[in-house]
Amino acid sequence: MYKLLKYSLYDIVKSRFALLYTLFLVLVAISIYQVSEDMGKVSLSLLNIMLMIVPLIAAVFASTHFFNNLEFTELMLAQPVKRRDVFLSQFLAVAFVLSMALIVGFGVPMLIWGADVTILTLLGIGIGLSVIFAGLAFLASVMTRDKAKAIGISLSFWIYFSLVYDGFVLYLIYSLADYPLEKTTLGLVFLNPVDLGRIIMLMQLDISALMGYTGAFFQNFFGSFQGILISSGVLLLWMLWPSYFALRVFRKKDF
């Protein structure tokens, strides 16, 4: 397992993607730090960019990597190693590289210009989203035989969670504006990891007052210890289930 992980990691690090992605994140972070001195504004801008870019890159890179590495996977399956180990080494290598790029890319500017707890939360959410969307992309990849189809499905996951879902929630809230919807909205937030990440972060920034009564309710929930525990638990669940199901399909797949 560790041996396989070592070789998978070596292969990804050798490809230029990891370096380019890190450089891109560094540039984004530097430019945002240049614009404002206020730490709250910086983390809000970083958050908005991160919520768009990190899931997108994670989804596309993970599905591309799965199919580019199909040869390696096939080679390994003919060797005396477990299928589970082959899958996990691939998945963990992708998750590790995506997370490291984020930690280095956003972390280096933070070390230079300062950081607070909110930015650390931001990093945590970014890593969570990388793992979640890499998992969804692996799930899409093991279910299809075609690279283009897998990338397409991964992209639609991204579009769904980043754009479509919010539209659906807004529509629901507007059409049912006469009813108390706080708990429903909270439930809906848990069904979308991108929204969940956004809300956790916004609650840390003390701008919930802008969101009216729902904001106050959210502040109450996410501000409490129990709320933090539940929301990070749900985020963790999101990190685990796609890759778990992908592994189950992978173990039964024909190569």
């Binding site: 070789y7 070596y10 080679l75």
Partner: peptide, 10 residues
């Protein structure tokens, strides 16, 4: 195998 395919960077 019929067609041996290996990791490119190795």
């Amino acid at each position: 195998p019929q067609i041996g395919r290996y990791p490119d960077n190795m």
